[in-house]
């Protein structure tokens, strides 16, 4: 029983980790409607920035988020403005996907070029210490990630519901043409959203960096998992992405224990496929939100 509780706790914590990556992706995938294959590389860039800043200036890695998140915002906004926006009019959405594949390849290899294939270790500054909840052990850093994910979801939700800009973003997501008619600058909204999505993962990277070794290829694992979480949660739904991530975290941890660690990926992707096929609006989506499904 203790083991089971510990696995559940591990799964939830892992879910929190996935969530903080997936929330940014759901903004980009759900609103700008671009499959951003470079999202994992955004995380990687953020983790390296955190590593450089926290070791270079000897500050707590969490503090670097103040610089990393804005930096990632700029990276995201530039990606949208310079790479995706010129392709928005392309009749073929394949093209955008390949653009982000190109970006992903370029960023990953740039990291390899600059940092080499060795791992980089961000100092933990105490976030690797443990707290005991009954018999269950959890790292403080994992709790921070989990808490930050919740705050991020609530904050984004409030932003989307209460602010003018947030409402404009939602309007654009639902119907771009109509939003434009209403005087919303859709191009700006997309740049902003892409930037925000990247900034979210930037925030996440500062929290994740002290927990995991950073390497140029760390993003590749996260990006596919994050897509799974986003689709599971319902496209464009921020709380959905969060809960989707928790589900995937739990599935991952439980299948790793009960089915076998070599098959856990297969389990996760099979669940993903079942959701895609049987309930494409996602586990938590209330309405069909697949703009790409034709009547």
């Amino acid at each position: 029983m203790d083991t089971f509780l510990q696995i559940v706790a591990n799964g939830l914590m892992l879910g929190g980790l996935f969530a903080i990556v997936a929330v940014g992706l759901t903004l980009i995938f759900g609103i700008v409607k671009v499959i951003n294959f470079a999202h994992g590389e955004f995380l990687m860039v953020g983790m390296y920035l955190t590593f450089l800043l926290s070791t270079g200036m000897d500050v707590h890695p969490y503090l670097t988020a103040a610089a990393v998140a804005p930096a990632l915002f700029v990276l995201g906004a530039l990606t949208q403005r310079l790479l995706i926006q010129p392709l928005m009019s392309a009749r073929d959405e394949h093209v955008q996907i390949f653009a982000t594949v190109g970006l992903s390849t370029a960023l990953m290899n740039l990291a390899l070029l600059v940092f080499g294939a060795d791992i980089a270790n961000t100092p933990a500054h105490g976030v690797r210490s443990q707290v005991m909840l009954g018999e269950v052990r959890i790292l403080t850093g994992q709790l921070w990630v989990f808490g930050a994910a919740i705050l991020l979801v609530i904050g984004l939700q409030l932003f989307m519901k209460k602010t003018r800009t947030g409402r404009a973003i939602r309007a654009t997501a639902q119907n771009r043409a109509a939003a434009r008619l209403m005087g919303i600058n859709d191009k700006f909204i997309y740049v902003l959203t892409f930037g925000m999505g990247a900034a979210c993962v930037g925030l996440g990277s500062s929290l994740i960096a002290p927990l995991y070794p950073t390497s140029p290829t760390i993003g590749t694992y996260f990006v596919l998992i994050a897509f799974v979480c986003v689709v599971l949660g319902g496209l464009g739904s921020i709380p959905g992405a969060f809960f989707g991530a928790l589900v995937i975290g739990l599935v991952d941890a439980l299948s790793g224990f009960y089915i076998g660690s070599d098959l856990r990926e297969a389990v996760v992707f099979t669940i993903f496929l079942l959701i895609l096929i049987l309930k494409p609006s996602g586990l938590f989506g209330t309405r069909m939100n697949l703009s790409h499904v034709s009547p």
Binding site: A90, D92, V95, G102, L103, T105, L107, N109, L110, L112
Partner: peptide, 20 residues
Amino acid sequence: IGLHGFVYGVVLMLVVLFLP
């Protein structure tokens, strides 16, 4: 290490942008 992949990625982006 990585230079070839970096150039490859950049070229892919450029092709997509200018020869969609």
